[in-house]
Amino acid sequence: MTYFNNILASVQTVFEGMTITFSHLFRPPMTIQYPDRTARPIKETLPERYRGFLHVDTSICTCCTLCETSCPIDCIVIDHGKDAELGKRVMTRFDIDEAKCMYCGLCTEPCPTGAIAFTREFEAATTDLESLVFKFINKGDKIVPYKVVKTKKGGDVAAEEAGA
């Protein structure tokens, strides 16, 4: 009797299995065809606080070099000094070696203006390791650091900045 039950069971299960696989032909596949056929750029789907490459906004960098000193791997290099022509302190080099960077965030914590911050950029695979050293000041440029405005407690920062 089990003999005939076996035959019946095999016919039933094969039939049912075939209906399931056939139904899968009509469902959209779950493949995400990175990088060229995604629904949105992957960058935009990442969380806001995602730790991608570091970016420095040199227009608000105060050249305090706290990020340079806090980096445990010494991947940030800032050259600064008194410039003879302008008579002020200038920055001539701000390099971050993104390949060395371990994305710990110890540099973004002490930054007074938030000039150095994480982005959501992560797609920089390259065959040349040197190209992963991001240079935020072009060779030969001199950037005057941002002057921090002292304000009264509870004062209007924007008005003071506009005035200064």
Partner: peptide
């Protein structure tokens, strides 16, 4: 067979 396929499509979606 096709009825069962339709069943799977409706209930598994």
């Amino acid at each position: 067979f096709f009825m069962r396929v339709k069943y799977h499509l409706d209930y598994a979606k």
